[in-house]
């Protein structure tokens, strides 16, 4: 599927998809979206890259590393990064739950503050749930991409 059409489309589509995903993550609290859907969408962007450019593209083309031809996919540095990502995600989610404990609230309590008069936004709401949602996002992206890249390499 690595045709020119596919590659050209991917070049344009992938950034758009990623930006939409991030906006879904940030806006999720008030508009349709959220950590899970943003994570799945981000994974989709990576899948498009994989389909258009091949599995090794991320390491060779983006990170500029040499790829050992005989390597096993599960030992891949990118896969290691995905694995770290979902570990970090779980840590963020659990950590965001532990913070309220330190402030004598039950585990995973959330709160929010509304800031008025912020430049550009004027009215900005920061919810602690966003940290938890970020954890969700990381776990979904890391987990799905680990599965896809390992299964895809088969």
């Amino acid at each position: 599927m690595t045709t020119v059409i596919m590659r050209t489309t991917a070049r344009i589509v992938v950034p758009i998809v990623l930006i939409v995903a991030i906006s879904l993550l940030i806006e999720g609290h008030n508009l349709p979206g959220g950590g899970f859907i943003a994570g799945v969408l981000t994974s989709t962007a990576f899948v498009i890259v994989y389909i258009a450019f091949g599995l090794d593209f991320l390491e060779r083309g983006v990170l500029g590393r040499d790829v050992d031809p005989g390597k096993t996919p599960s030992r891949d540095r990118v896969v290691v990064a995905y694995r770290r990502l979902f570990t970090v995600g779980l840590a963020i989610a659990v950590g965001s739950g532990l913070v309220p404990l330190a402030l004598a609230h039950p585990f995973l309590s959330q709160s929010y503050v509304v800031l008025e008069g912020v430049p550009l936004y004027h009215h900005l709401e920061i919810a602690s749930a966003l940290a938890f949602d970020l954890g969700v996002y990381c776990v979904v992206v890391g987990g799905l991409l680990t599965i896809i890249s390992v299964v895809g390499a088969e």
């Binding site: 999720g28 609290h29 008030n30 508009l31 349709p32 979206g33 959220g34 950590g35 899970f36 989610a93 659990v94 739950g97 585990f107 995973l108 959330q110 709160s111 929010y112 509304v114 709401e125 919810a127 749930a129 938890f132 949602d133 969700v136």
Partner: peptide, 20 residues
Amino acid sequence: GGGQNIVNVILVDFRSFDTL
């Protein structure tokens, strides 16, 4: 929850233990 998206508020706020 401080959010208008009720689905998301349920997921990350009211029932975040399930989500975890």
